[in-house]
Amino acid sequence: MDGRIFGLDIQLGFDVIMQGIAVFIMFALLSYILFEPVRKILEDRKNRIADEIDQAAADQAEAAKLKAEYDHKLKNVEKEADALMAQARKKALKREEEIVAGAKEEAARIIESANHEAELARINAQDQMKQEMVKMAVLMAGKFIQNQMDEKDQNAFVDQTLQEMGDKTWLQE
């Protein structure tokens, strides 16, 4: 050694080159053995995270779509409920009209029946009155025959009988 601190000789150059080659080989070997699996794990993790992010975005889009569909259906349900209520009201009004019409028809039948019964009662009363008149006439005739009254007495007797029967009896027909 010639008093130099750092001697550049061929041996040092060869050692440096050998160490550089050894480091390069070791780096390549470690890169192949260690770094590749780590890179693969990191790449797989990166892909998995990207897939999860994509899936989360798709799920979020699906949730937004379902929410929009739900809101739309909710609005339609309200409209359908309103439509059903309107339809029910129409049916109720129609049923009410049918009931009222049926009641009016029944009332008309009852009134017609009552009028018919009143007419029958009036006819029956007229028949009875006519029968009474006939009986009275027969009685009067019998009394005329029995008494052989003169004309003045007969007129007085007819007037008296008419007064007993009353004016209303002769006026109804």
Rank of each mutant, 00 (worst) to 15 (best):
I41W: 15
L42K: 07
L42Y: 14
E43W: 07
D44R: 04
D44Y: 03
R45M: 13
R45C: 06
R45A: 11
R45N: 15
K46F: 05
R48S: 05
R48V: 10
R48A: 05
I49R: 03
I49D: 00
A50R: 10
A50I: 09
A50N: 06
A50P: 05
A50W: 08
D51W: 13
D51S: 07
E52K: 07
E52R: 03
I53L: 13
I53V: 11
I53M: 12
I53W: 09
D54L: 13
D54H: 14
D54F: 13
Q55W: 15
Q55S: 06
Q55L: 14
Q55M: 13
Q55C: 07
A56N: 05
A56V: 10
A56C: 05
A56S: 11
A56L: 15
A57E: 14
A57M: 11
D59E: 11
D59N: 11
D59V: 13
Q60D: 14
A61H: 01
A61P: 00
A61F: 02
E62N: 07
E62P: 00
E62R: 07
A63E: 10
A63I: 09
A63Q: 11
A64P: 02
A64C: 01
K65H: 03
K65R: 12
K65E: 10
L66G: 01
L66A: 04
K67I: 03
A68K: 02
A68M: 02
E69W: 03
E69S: 02
Y70Q: 04
Y70C: 03
D71R: 01
D71H: 00
D71A: 03
H72F: 12
H72A: 12
H72S: 13
